[in-house]
Nucleic acid binder design. Structure first.
Lengths: 346, 346
DNA sequence: TTGAAAGCGCTAACAA
DNA sequence: TTGTTAGCGCTTTCAA
């Protein structure tokens, strides 16, 4: 039978085999850099592939192997922070694995996003910034090993890799207290991921120093608007009662605080210290210079990928809650509490 | 021969056929909601599939058909604006097509991101916020129909869908001039996408009103820091020479301007008007309320998907530069120019 | 070191 | 309306 090379669109492994005058198995070996082909044939095949512009069809490859080597990532892009995580994940997987990204959007529900990944036969699922019930997650985990990132779940639901938010709350609060702040405020995340834990760290720390009576909590949220709204409440307080140190749920919220404070003529950090959370890109800008708590994306991505690979090999492993430590990043929005004399000027 | 149901991991179409007591072709029809199966069998198959938890393997599906119905998106997530575009694209494709997302990151070069998509046998490629040479793009386009979003390219390189930046620059500038601003400033994007066109629109408009001598241009960029730096230059000018209206390359840049101005005690919009570009999420926040130029993501996504589908069906179509109109969104950072009396207070 | 052949899960002729 | 059969492009035994 005549070799069918060049019949249709893209060249196939058969075309390359014909062009090089060898079998398809040999082409397969060479293309994947596996041992077992003579140098001469290796060269011949490589050149034939190059000549034809051959690209191995990854659908066919993955269909043939039992494992696809693909990590599915279900992501909600609403929060810019998640783009950083995607980057970190790409950096971690190297070339041995692939990432398949499926977004949850207002018009594309979680089930749909996950179904796409399951149908692609990903080996494992990572959830990033996704709101889901324990029931949903456990159902997904039954179909495919699932790992939740950056979020604490009820005991034993599914695997999690996250940074200790209680500890983060503690570090932020201690940073303020150690600079002499007494009237401190936590603007919370209104139920968003990690908010309650950060609050717990805050409360625990102020109580530990016997300063609970000076501490306040105000409802906030994850956006600049939430921070701005809370700050307006602060501005409505008699100036002697106002906090001198504010810990906001995240950097975006802290930015709203900062912006509103500055617009009201308050000097930061001289009159007011502000600390955020996430060490997001925005906090790192020179013009912002936000003191913040870093959730190291590289470490989280590293642990997540390691766990993903482990679950690929042994899907039945029981759920593990992997907790990493946060880091305090001091920049220029926090400083010593204003002394009484200074305070009067405010 | 005995049906092989339940041998290994996931159920296949064969398992469902066995369970329902019909042929695989019938299962295939039912699963894809195609006509040609009796209601009774349709029900039987659906129930069998449900019982087994069957999920069609999309790798196998796409391997079998010549077209995969998949639109590959090469994206650079650095700019938060692109997350909005992804959302809009998902909304546009409906359920007839799929999106495969491949990110370009500092550690993952363009070629690599594109290769992944080609190997998946996407039918067409969309480029979003990606920096690429004409040569690279033309090479990609030879392998797969390619469409660049939100960026103007040399004539005839590849398909583009974008918003008219010259017009956007014109609208922004006219908005300032129509509010009585004379000393106007454009903070440019230092070569970033669309920057030169916006500058052209700016220059053309001030020249048209005979105000070229009052117009200034300062180097900027795409981040808050770039805007902040430019604004510090403005603050260094004698106050009589300072612009009263500033048009910034994008919203992030404008935010840096705003923040720096406010911190210097300048009231916006009473003493200074600021207009951004993109109508990004940040500009829409109540606490920011930035006047800006909207590049309608829905329209761009719609045109991009329409063009993608056209190119899927007829890959040889010659490159088209599809240009959409921008819209002025007036919020609260722009107002009438301060009159001389007011200006003296500044 | 090489090649022949079977088959991954599915769809699309074609036949019945 | 239903079933049979032949591949899609690849990897992987198995034999040579």
């Amino acid at each position: 039978m005549v070799p069918k090379a060049e019949t249709t669109g893209r060249p196939t492994i058969t075309d390359v085999a014909a062009e090089a005058g060898v079998s398809t198995s040999l082409v397969s070996l060479v293309m994947r850099n596996l041992p077992g082909a003579s140098p001469a044939n290796r060269k011949r095949v490589s050149e034939a592939a190059e000549r034809l512009g051959y690209r191995p069809d990854s659908r066919a490859q993955r269909l043939r192997k039992k494992q696809t080597g693909t990590i599915g990532v279900v992501v909600n892009f609403e929060h810019p922070f998640h783009a950083d995580m995607i980057e970190a994940l790409y950096a971690e997987i190297g070339s041995r694995y692939e990432l398949a990204i499926s977004a949850v959007t207002p018009g594309r529900k979680l089930e749909e996003a996950v179904a796409g990944l399951i149908n692609e036969r990903c080996d494992v699922l990572l959830f990033l910034g996704v709101v889901a019930t324990d029931e949903q997650l456990m159902a997904f985990d039954k179909e495919l090993p699932s790992i939740m990132l950056h979020r604490r779940l009820s005991e034993g639901t599914i695997d999690t890799v996250r940074v200790d938010d209680v500890d983060g709350g503690r570090m932020a609060t201690e940073h303020l207290l150690s600079h002499g702040h007494r009237r401190v405020l936590y603007i919370d995340g209104s139920g968003k991921a990690g908010s309650d834990d950060r609050l717990a760290g805050f409360m625990e720390t102020v109580a530990g120093k016997g300063l609970a009576e000076f501490a306040t909590v105000l409802p906030g949220g994850e956006s600049e608007d939430d921070g701005a709204r809370a700050m307006r409440e602060v501005l409505a307080m008699p100036s002697d009662d106002r906090p001198t140190g504010i810990f906001a749920y995240n950097d975006r919220c802290a930015l709203g605080v900062l912006y509103t404070a500055v617009r009201a003529g308050i000097r930061v950090p001289d009159e007011l210290s502000v600390i955020g959370y996430d060490d997001s890109r925005i906090s790192r800008l020179i013009s912002v210079g936000m003191t913040t708590i870093r959730q190291d994306t590289k470490s989280v991505a590293g642990s997540a990928v390691a766990r993903a690979i482990a679950r690929m090999q042994e899907p039945a492993l029981s759920a593990v809650d992997h907790v990493l430590q946060p880091t305090l990043i001091v920049r220029s929005t926090t400083a010593a509490a204003p002394n009484p004399a200074t305070k009067d000027i405010l």
